[in-house]
Design a protein around this nucleic acid. Structure first.
Lengths: 221, 221
DNA sequence: CTGCATCCGGGCCGATACTG
DNA sequence: CAGTATCGGCCCGGATGCAG
């Protein structure tokens, strides 16, 4: 992509990560090193030449390296994009209620979509294990020690089992879709749905990122 | 731009803000409503048709509205992108040391570049007024009440006056360029340069954003 | 089978000229 | 001042080929 040619932080960042697919490749690699075929599967819709082009340019711009085993891994600089990816994921919250429809979906994307909503530790958060069946592989949400994690696969004795389209699963987990209405969205809930409240103890929808704005501008109140 | 067609927060966000120039338009409007000609001046390099195209599509996607006076203003949804813009600006820190060279520059961009480095209130931060001459108009940095602001124009009796290329000004302010070496970078400092330390009281280079990563990451599987 | 490289059509981007 | 029109070129996307 052509450089913006502006001495500005945002513009210089976009010169590096503004190309199409770049941030989605970062998303995939934030889960750990991946090989070419795994990336191709995790990035439905990308053309093979574009994937290679991006991997090359991201390597020269210092976002990733190629390991001895041939897998691609983020550099520390690339991992620094975690905050950018999560800021965008948080902003996208309202967009996720729209049904997935024909959109492609991979189960491991749940990790970012969910963790972004439960960032930080909250000691009042209860322990909970939720098994999720949506997409190409089972995933398990684990709330423990005040933090929420998400791992591939299943674990023994989940408290709840969720099955259905991804937007319904996300809605139930983040609490915008009441369990009573979940069935109408194609979600089936195994176990005691009331336990889901443990994930959101008090009234803390926004994790106190403290959007320190300058004093002019209309300030979103 | 074509949609990624993925049910993923990052992908859906990029479907809306991934188009070239969109985030830079947001950057301009984060300073408040602007008219067409002002945007054109604040976005050196953009073609007039592209600016119009972006303004139209950003209006239909709910990022901005047109006021009665014809000026363009961010909606609350658009202002929500503040965190995204700042996350990228923070990540771009290391990229800003490279000289501006032939890059275009507008003085009001200092606001984002500087505020992003002093986000949040720190009661130990001292009061300071720095007048800056770099680019197309004078700017003034004001540290008061533990917060750092940046305003257009000049105020009476600044403590320090900085003049020179933008990368030198940024370097001196954030502290990576010692005042003793500033002259070699074309920076002239009026007043007592030691007062600049007031801006960075303790050893807090990173504002404790607490990059909460999941514990699995390396995933050698 | 994995990991690319090449080719080509279409659309978006960028620069300039022009208009109410 | 605030756009509209036009056109060349580059990037993107999909298909296909091919070497280890």
């Amino acid at each position: 992509m052509k450089s913006y040619g502006q001495y500005c932080g945002l513009a210089r960042a976009l010169d590096v990560i503004g190309d199409r697919w770049v941030l989605l490749i970062v998303r995939e690699l934030l889960d750990g090193p991946r090989r070419y075929a795994e990336l191709l599967d995790g990035l439905p819709g990308i053309a093979t030449n574009l994937l290679v082009d991006r991997l090359r340019s991201m390597e020269t711009s210092g976002l990733l390296t190629r390991q001895q085993d041939g897998r691609y891994a983020l550099t520390s600089r690339g991992e620094g994009l975690n905050d950018v990816v999560y800021a965008m994921g948080r902003w996208a919250g309202p967009l996720m209620l729209r049904p997935s429809g024909n959109d492609a979906f991979r189960s491991h994307w749940f990790r970012h979509m969910v963790v972004v909503r439960f960032e930080g530790a909250d000691p009042r958060r209860g322990n909970l294990v939720v098994e999720i069946h949506s997409g190409d592989e089972p995933m398990t949400l684990i709330s423990a020690g005040g933090r929420v994690h998400m791992v591939r696969g299943r674990v023994d004795k989940p408290d709840i089992v969720l099955t259905g389209p991804p937007e319904g699963v996300v809605g139930v987990i983040v609490g915008v879709l009441p369990p009573a209405e979940a069935a109408a969205r194609g979600i089936s809930i195994g176990g005691d749905a009331r336990k889901l409240k443990r994930l959101r103890p008090a009234r803390r929808s926004v994790p106190a990122t403290a959007t320190a704005k300058a004093p002019e501008a209309p300030a979103t109140a």
